[in-house]
Amino acid sequence: MEEIVHGVEALRAAIDKEDVTTAQAALNALKLKMISLASAMPRAQMTAEAARELSVVRQVYEEAIRLNVLQQDSAAFERHMAHLKPLYFEYASVLEPSPQMTLVIGLNLMRLLAQNRIAEFHTEIELLPEDVKQDPFVHYAMSVEQNLMVGSYTRIIATRSAVPDSSFVFFLDMLLKTIRDDLAECIEKAYQSLDLPFAKQVLMIPQDDDMIAYCQAHGWTLDGNRVIFDSGERPAVSLETSVPTIEIMKRSIAYAKELERIV
């Protein structure tokens, strides 16, 4: 137990120094030690000792989350989050609330947004009590989601300089990639053509070369200073394709069959 407490200190120090390899090694060692804790067993009795152990375990995982952000490893982040969630919600009555909780929850929400897992995002939101939702970290993630849904992409980009914690930047950058593809889809549909500087601004691609590569990847043509999206002319619809004959036949036969059974 004491070893673990010291281990957490070491881990925290390594992360503060951004020494990823040492931190990872420390974390791995800690995880091995944590297995032997009495409270780690399922159906363990909740004693005062167990509560202390769990709060240390919670610290370990919170540090692990910070490490994952440094490593930019969202898969490990998800795993550690799964460990933390019961510690936050199921044991809420036994453990003191953790000062890091809202930060971790906010980060997790941002991760779900960045990975475009909106349904899970909302499931998480439902779990949060009202006072947690007012917390700046959590509130930030929620406002990002709202802007995202409406389409105020510019506002999200504007918040990049105002993130509540530097660790948010990782997921925000991840989110921006998602947004860029989203935007590309939008402008493709909404415009017939667009001048290059504006397109660059919208898609947040500062370099000309990158922009040209991006256009080619999406099959857009460049005409001087304009980007032409190739959705302008709709192909003429022929009778064969406009009337889905097979489908209609199938349905009619199905109706006939059902009616036959009824009568």
């Binding site: 409406v150 389409g151 105020s152 992409y153 510019t154 935007l183 889809e185 939008c186 549909k189 909404a190």
Partner: peptide
Amino acid sequence: EDAELIIAKAVR
């Protein structure tokens, strides 16, 4: 500018 993107999303 914001509005333009909102409209673009609505179109999409």
